[in-house]
Design a protein around this nucleic acid. Structure first.
Lengths: 329, 329
DNA sequence: GTGAAAGCGCTAACAC
DNA sequence: GTGTTAGCGCTTTCAC
């Protein structure tokens, strides 16, 4: 895009050195004597030289580009991840290719394959595709998962089991004895969360209402769930993500129920939305920023050491108590 | 990343043709006889060949990659734009580099410059940098703006002036005689919107309260604005984006005011958030998806025809009436 | 319609 | 430390 497209050859001429020296100045600066380096840098500045990425990629067989696939860019959960990944890749001077799979598993797999060809590695955030496909991709090239775990594939995800216990401890301490958990069983993308939730309830002596669903993790299903809450006998609702949580809040408001007066509400996920609500939502904070950053690190490491064993990074969650929880009745 | 890295030479051998024929099959298919083409494609499939982008970019001097800069990935307004741009670039078989400028004008300019070197063109969504900088970038290479207008630079943006009139017509029809407009004068990123708003109010005989601010376009400032609404004598509030709108809604709720019972509320911007609220917000819909798509088209066109005159695409808005507006008092 | 050949701008041995 | 040289995989004249 640069109007003045200077090449390393030009810079070499200008600085009175060979082209390889120029190349070294840009890739292995320490191997060049300080004064030569300075001369080269100076010449490069004068000529407004920028290394040609394509040439470099071709010659070294590395694109210095990472690919990120997310199911939905607009979902703040993924948006936060994108932001974090973007920040981290930049810090590591890698470029970032972004693709939105639109919640379609097939599409996601194809996109991933296509992207794999033009990047050094793939970051899959909350992949919708089957584990087998994820493994197949990981077989073919560097892959790291963010917010999901697949055995044999590098992954960074939150420790939701402990998180659930934080939530239950809080509700139990307030005096709640019966709670509803609105998860995404309908879309089946919250695998393995039921059991930790049951365990957490048991640990704190709280009764869990499980029969309300099945619901998807959408606003509308949150509203639908809210309609069933009053007759369930529960005094608190735990929503598996912010979108359902907003739905539950909206549904309760529509019924004229007060939060946290009549019902307490806590959400898993804690983006700006939990605060952009009245009352502000008590939330189990998922460290999306560090998940994203760690994902990048895992991937970069794998790119270096393709054969090493898969690593799994579990990140701690934390409960952020806001205005949507209180003592029952 | 592919394990089996077949090259065009491999495919050529396999298909019994020359390498240039293989190349033609992939870049200018029509110039190759149908049966040869088929043979090549078949061989390519067998070898799982994928063209090497870097090599292609180097040889043809085009990366087939577009860069997108946004101030904040997490803001649904930009997230929608990203989604649309992403969809469009994919349809045009271009890759997409994404960068988040984090609301920092300086950083944005530098990022843009860096990105310009590794892409065929730049898409700037809601750029925070000065117009002069935008022009400088446009001087150096293909640039298109999304959701902003700078003379001399291709841009796609919404016709907010007409949009304001939609809003005022609606409120006037409901019987509102005095409204508050909460815009972002504090951050000064809603230039030129005041006058159209005044004009729209005048056209519909509605009194405009302008002295409430200055506010930024944030949730908290929305809450602050809401505190001043009851004493202003206005019966409706127009928020310049969803974040402030949520703040206003939250602030009014905190005061125990009902919407739309006591105050009507309309927001400019209409992402999922306007619906994920109770009551759902009447909103001036900004066609972010088409803005994004048109931005890509403008940029692609400029890449082809660098010297053509700047084009400006104005997109119509539409008022989506939901539950937050009603007759006053 | 197809092939031969000369690069695109950079990297990485390998010599000096 | 620095220069020489041979590619990286593709595109694109130019012949045939």
């Amino acid at each position: 895009v640069n109007v003045a497209v200077a090449t390393m050859a030009d810079v070499a001429r200008e600085a009175g050195v060979s082209q390889s020296t120029v190349s070294r100045v840009f890739s292995l600066p320490e191997t060049v004597r300080a004064d030569t380096r300075l001369r080269v840098l100076e010449a490069a500045r004068r000529l407004e030289f920028t290394p040609n990425r394509a040439a470099s990629a071709l010659a070294r067989g590395r694109t210095r580009t990472l690919g990120l696939l997310v199911p939905d860019v607009v979902n703040p959960y993924y948006a936060e991840i994108i932001k974090a990944v973007q920040r981290r890749t930049r810090a590591k001077s890698q470029a970032l290719f972004l693709a939105d799979t639109g919640d379609d598993p097939e599409d996601g797999f194809e996109l991933a394959q296509a992207m794999a060809g033009q990047t050094d590695g793939l970051l899959l955030a909350g992949p919708r595709m089957a584990d087998a496909m994820v493994r197949e991709l990981a077989q073919a090239g560097p892959v790291a998962l963010i917010g999901a775990r697949v055995d044999g594939v590098d992954s960074a995800y939150a420790d939701l089991a402990t998180g659930m216990r934080h939530v239950l401890r809080h509700l139990a301490a307030l005096g709640h004895a019966k709670v509803v958990y609105v998860d995404g069983t309908l879309a089946a993308r919250t695998p393995g969360h039921r059991q930790p939730m049951r365990d957490a309830c048991e640990e704190y002596g709280v009764e869990l209402v499980e029969q309300l669903g099945p619901f998807a993790l959408t606003f509308d299903d949150g509203v639908a769930a809210a309609d069933l809450v009053p007759t369930s006998g529960a005094t608190a609702v735990i929503a598996h993500n912010e979108m359902v949580a907003l739905g539950v809040a909206g549904g309760l408001a529509r019924q004229g129920r007060s939060v946290p007066g009549e019902f307490s509400l806590v959400t898993v996920d804690d983006t700006f939305m939990a605060r952009a609500t009245y009352p502000a939502l008590t939330a189990l904070h998922i460290p999306l920023d560090v998940m994203g950053a760690r994902g990048v690190d895992l991937l970069l490491h794998r790119i270096e050491a393709a054969e090493s064993e898969a690593r799994h990074v579990t990140l701690p969650t934390s409960l952020v108590v806001r205005a949507s929880t209180g003592a029952p009745h």
